[in-house]
Design a protein around this nucleic acid. Structure first.
Lengths: 192, 192
DNA sequence: TCAGAATAGTCAGATTCTTGACTAGAAGGA
DNA sequence: TCCTTCTAGTCAAGAATCTGACTATTCTGA
């Protein structure tokens, strides 16, 4: 039931279209939740029917028309209720970790390659999040902004995303190094 | 489709019962995947039917009998195929992040409390993972173990879990501090 | 100029995950 | 002695998520 609250949280400060939400909840950003466009459009329909978000048609000249949504008072109340309830613990669920768990039984080369790809993807996210953070805080230092900024929610979740991706990158690189070192050691033990 | 591979990866090195798996994939450990007992028992049944794991009845005196499973050659082949394929990116999906995203519109006190609870839970996992890592590497240093250890897969995923929980703890504490500082600042601006 | 990406969505179907309940004996603590 | 927890599972139903396809128009790069 948290997708609906994630959508509400994303529609608190500004109007967004389903399409904009879809991009925000996509692989590229997804700093506090992830969902596919289909889920988002479906959820927006439900939320609007329940009066938790309000939709508005925006006529565009050169682009297809779109509907933009914003959380209503009722939506905010729903989000507050959600916030008051206990949070479920969050779990890791990652294909790559499953593969590394089997590291002793599978081809190291493939793992090293995938770890490299993941590290590159993490690096790209790090750049993106860093730029987003800088944009949000403007000229201020982070500490200043967090003390007197008006909208710090998105900044805080972005910080979490940044830390996650840094860890991700560092871990991938470390593990790839370990696997390479073991390949080298294995070669030197039984050479030729 | 990754649960089946997570189960296979968990059954590579040693036999385990569904019940043992359930504990390993539970909230408490879950260092490379998470699943509920119901999912695991169902998946084990499927895997056995497909010949990817082999089950064996163990008769116990004082405890209910149990069935223990281990990956077969076919299971290992399946896992290798999985490893060769591209990994899906991993996403954050966390109730608490949704709540923090809405931080500017909800009660800070509740958030601070939940951040504290999460930090405590993370700390407990940190202890657990640290102990597990120590147990796995024995007397050796980490670098030594990772270079010449025989089964490093579970160690590597545990390292990832440790880093994740450390980040989690640090971020929760930092955000709770920020929210407290803002509460204090708000009080001093409009006192009484 | 022509293919491909971006904008702005929708639909159906399958799979996966979660919630909740239920059985049953043994061990441990108050 | 009784209550709770632990071991060791099973069943059904519902919610959430993912896969894949489909419609249109417009802008952009080769």
């Amino acid at each position: 039931m948290a997708l609906r609250h994630a959508v509400l949280a994303a529609l608190l400060d500004e109007e967004r279209s389903g399409y904009q939400l879809a991009k925000a909840f996509d692989v590229g950003v997804a700093n506090f939740w992830h969902a596919l466009p289909q889920q988002l459009y479906a959820e927006l329909t439900k939320l609007e029917r329940e009066g938790l978000v309000a939709g508005r048609e925006v006529v565009q000249e050169t682009r297809p028309n779109k509907r933009v949504f914003q959380a209503t008072e009722a939506g905010l109340a729903e989000l507050r209720e959600f916030t008051a309830a206990a949070s479920k613990p969050s779990f890791i669920r990652d294909d790559l970790l499953v593969k590394v768990q089997g590291a002793d039984h599978v081809d190291s080369g493939q793992l090293i390659e995938q770890l490299g790809e993941r590290a590159t993807a993490a690096e790209a996210k790090i750049e993106l999040f860093s730029a987003l953070l800088h944009q949000m805080r403007g000229d201020e230092s982070e500490d200043e902004f967090l003390l007197d900024g008006e909208r710090i929610g998105p900044y805080l979740t972005c910080l979490r995303g940044l830390a996650f991706e840094r860890d991700n990158r560092d871990w991938c690189r470390r593990i790839a190094d370990v696997l390479r070192a073991r390949q080298a050691a294995a070669l030197s033990h039984r050479p030729g």
